[in-house]
Design a protein around this nucleic acid. Structure first.
Lengths: 212, 212
DNA sequence: CCCTAATTGTACTGTACAGTTCAAATACGA
DNA sequence: TCGTATTTGAACTGTACAGTACAATTAGGG
């Protein structure tokens, strides 16, 4: 059932419908949350009969789980699989920090996904644990790997690389996260994101940098 | 209508009911969120007729606004109005950081209140902006004041005190916030909270401390 | 002690929405 | 081209819940 195709290589009508359901469900979830996602409206937007949705996904809750999994698959590797290794520590860290400030400060969909998971955490612990692991968790581990490499090169002091990566991630939320989460604050400017990333790296390097 | 009392000093029955409604509504909101708060159940729990609730508060949404305001009033001054001024910088900062790590790591009600505001941010921008201002906002400003004082005493380097306070707050969420927000992670141990606070202050002082 | 305003219980209205049913239509594999 | 499996639409069921109506009751100020 996974990615079944006709001999010509095109997606089956059936597969197209499946994706249409998942994509539209994700969009609706990000817009309106779980309770706000109306199954009748979903069937209209996905150009699919409501009966079909229930045939394929069973229930709204099961659909939710598949939507989150689907969304995680799409977002994977968006984070930090780059040429970071070749950069000097300061530049690499700045790049990471700027990616993070932009993510929280400018990517509305990501913010909505975070909110969605926070809300859903009680009702769907499995889905949101998957999100945590595959999203922030995986990202932080990758950053920790790079930090370790910079430590080995002598560009950073020896220290717990995972803790350092976590602190960098938190520093990159400064003056962004609260405003965007609790208030209805619109996206930050690129310039502001750069400023905050600079400050985050400055504090980070004060502790972890190798310079005297 | 505010805190009306009888001549004997006791609360009017009417006032008692008002408080019973607000307190129970808050408890239910923290347990089940806005949509999960059932007005019939509230009337049972508050030992009050549903008609009374609607007479006094108008609608569920108006009630929500008053509950948030009521809750903020109760939590005010819980944060940092202490003997901080008399402490040396390092100890004062540790105290603040530990208060913050404990708040996110151990206070379940506070966590639920945060979640509630995050969810409600779209539907009730005014309520959550009030929360942001009166909660994190006010707390950070108070910390910034203390930082300024330590700077003037020469215990900390001159630098933007507000930014420093914000960074300290973010550092104090390290390895706590995500787990508690996205996953269903139970409260952290006091020891762990101390560890994280220590690490936060270490990074903070590396940048802002006056020592060479 | 009396008058007014708040309070109560109960039953009701209306609505939004998840999930079902089923006969008719359609698509796909062979 | 044929037979099977999927899809469709539309109407339907059941439920949960916000909000209302109102006549009977109660509480508190003067």
């Amino acid at each position: 059932m996974e990615q079944r195709v006709t001999k010509s290589g095109r997606l089956t009508a059936s597969e197209q419908k499946r994706l249409a359901i998942l994509d539209n469900a994700l969009a609706m979830l990000l817009e309106d949350g779980f309770d706000g996602m109306n199954m009748d409206e979903l069937s209209e937007r996905a150009l699919v009969s409501k009966a079909t949705i229930y045939n394929r996904f069973g229930s709204k809750e099961d659909l939710f789980l598949e939507v989150i999994a689907h969304s995680l698959k799409k977002n994977r590797d968006k984070i930090v699989t780059d040429d970071l290794a070749s950069l000097p520590a300061r530049e690499g860290l700045l790049k990471v920090a700027f990616e993070l400030t932009s993510m929280f400060g400018r990517d509305d969909d990501m913010l909505r996904l975070c909110k969605l998971c926070i809300v859903a955490a009680e009702r769907f612990p499995l889905a949101t644990e998957a999100f945590l692991k595959s999203g922030p968790g995986q990202g932080t581990e990758q950053v920790a790997e790079h930090i370790k490499r910079w430590q080995e090169r002598g560009e950073l002091k020896p220290a717990d690389p995972l803790l350092a990566a976590q602190q960098l991630a938190e520093l990159s939320k400064t003056s962004i996260f609260d405003k965007r989460m609790y208030a209805h604050h619109g996206p930050m400017s690129v310039v502001r994101c750069h400023e905050i990333a600079e400050e985050a790296v400055a504090t980070f390097l004060a502790r972890y940098g190798a310079r005297a």
